[in-house]
Amino acid sequence: MNKTLFVVILFILAVVLSLLVGPAQLNNQILQLRISRAVLGIFAGGILAFCGGILQGLFGNPLVEPYTLGAASGAALGGSIGVLVFGTVSPFLAFLGASGVGFFVYTIARLEGGLFRDRLILAGVVMSFLCSSLVMIIMVMGGKELYEILYLLMGYLGIIINTTNRILIIFLIIISLATVIFLYRFHRELDIISQGMETAAGLGIDIQKFSLIIFFATSLIIGFTVSIVGAIGFVGLIIPHIARLLFGPKHLYNLPASFILGGTFLLLADTLSRIITVYELPVGVVTSLIGVPFFIYLYKK
């Protein structure tokens, strides 16, 4: 219970810090800015870490992260096409790209025999490479569009939520949270599936159907996240490990912990990214800077 308290306090601390700390004097406008960042930070960090935890469980592979199945590069491709066509990154096309790649990955994975689950990873990696090279082509050919795509690839939380985009973002957050709760129902299946496919089948889990549900549900919300804040790295890979180190292998406990810790870490990292230097460091850089020492400390312990 101590650990739960620790995590909750850390979370509250991160929220308060992110609202109070920054280079500017707080006023109405600055507060709007910081609340936007805090909301997006909690949302994106939570979703990415949660999905990372689920996918690492499903694939029984600690190196899997939310972007392994191609969502990030798909969103980047969709976003880049949007830049070419409309001159600006549209979250809708980014999402379409992420889900489109998901569909291709699924189709490729179904083509040949063998275990569907393992081929998903391979298909995801292959599709990621394809999308990355297409994005590269667009970047090299396009020139000035490059910067928008760069931000989509690096991730950026500084999007202000105002009256024009508020409804969309709230809508996406609600759908994502509903999906998170839906996925959380499968915590027992994930525990079991980590011990192997045959074990899971023997205990009454329909592996193919289950993999498919997880794959599409996570692709959906990862696509949402990337389309709004870009492909923020690290959180989805390392936070699930930290959650397991703190709360053990049971997904009943470590999945919610991943969500909260992911949000906390991204918020802290974003706060730091605003104050360390005059310019804004990419938030993904800072997540690794504070996350890795913490991870090593826990691992040693």
Binding site: A24, I30, Y147, I160, E280, L281
Partner: peptide, 11 residues
């Protein structure tokens, strides 16, 4: 040039 801080601008 490419990473200005929105908060510093507003400040």
């Amino acid at each position: 040039f490419s990473h200005p801080s929105l908060e510093r601008i507003l400040a």
